[in-house]
């Protein structure tokens, strides 16, 4: 990868490296290698992916575009991570505003489980409606990721038995769980999460013969920018809806 022959090889990186603990996680698909699911657990879905972590593993900052992948750019994100550490110290000291801000960061970064986050919000007094709505969307993102992590784990466990039919079964399994979320109005607020959610909602709707879920999936997909894969999926979903005897 160009980062490895570029920014991570330069002398400037050495200066930056002295300020941090360097941890390299390599997805190898070697069955005996540890932490092969850490990328997903830390919110990554592709390579390269860079995050700054506290000693307890919580995400303090993510290095994202448009910040450059250079030693200077890493230094800027390190400053952001250091500010997060200071904020957590303030929260630990009882500062109410800092506690709220840390909670918001933990939700954004997936440092909490959906269950932990739901319990925390339930205990918050005088929560503004706007904040509650924002938290609900972020908690739905966590719930979504937990469901997908479970599905991905089942896929890995199947190994050679992961056939196209098995994949469809797993997608329907996720979709069934998303139907429960959608029925309870727990909709993810993240763009990537929301798109997967609605696609699988439709797949779950087909499997469960739930025309309302299938219709909701189609309605949502029709609002996205068109592309051939999307058009194909919408056509499949509409055919399935017709077969259910609705429309």
């Amino acid at each position: 990868m160009s980062m490895e022959s570029g920014p991570l090889s330069g002398d400037e990186f050495g200066d930056f490296a002295s300020k941090v603990v360097l941890y390299l996680n390599v997805t190898s698909h070697v069955k005996t290698d540890a932490d092969q699911d850490l990328l997903g657990a830390k919110g990554g879905s592709g390579f390269p992916y860079l995050v700054f972590l506290a000693a307890d593993g919580k995400i303090l900052a993510k290095h994202n575009y448009p910040r450059p992948r250079t030693a200077d750019g890493f230094g800027e994100t390190l400053e952001e991570a250091e500010a997060a550490v200071a904020l957590r110290a303030k929260a630990a000291g009882g500062d109410a505003d800092a506690v709220r801000e840390v909670f918001g960061q933990d939700l954004e970064y997936g440092n909490l489980t959906a269950k932990e986050a739901t319990a925390a919000v339930a205990g918050m007094k005088n929560l503004a409606a706007e904040d509650k709505a924002r938290y609900d969307g972020l908690i739905a993102n966590l719930e979504f990721r937990e469901i997908m992590a479970g599905i991905n784990k089942k896929a890995e466990e199947l190994g050679d038995a992961l056939t196209p039919d098995a994949i469809k079964g797993l997608q329907a399994d996720a979709g069934k769980q998303f139907i429960a979320m959608w029925t309870a109005k727990r909709i993810p607020s993240g763009e990537q999460e929301r798109r997967t959610f609605y696609v699988f909602l439709g797949i779950g709707g087909e499997a469960e013969k739930d025309s309302a879920a299938l219709e909701a999936s189609i309605e949502e997909m029709k609002t996205w920018p068109s592309n051939p894969n999307l058009a194909k999926r919408i056509a499949e979903a509409e055919a399935a809806l017709k077969a259910l005897g609705t429309k």
């Binding site: 390599v26 932490d35 830390k42 992916y49 250091e82």
Partner: peptide, 26 residues
């Protein structure tokens, strides 16, 4: 560079040194 490839050891070093962990996924 002194890259850790063991997550638990990287966290232990961070706790000991007070430094933040720069995590690179490849």
């Amino acid at each position: 560079q002194p890259w850790f490839t063991d997550y638990a050891k990287a966290k232990a070093e961070a706790a000991k040194s007070g430094k933040i962990i720069f995590t690179y996924f490849s």
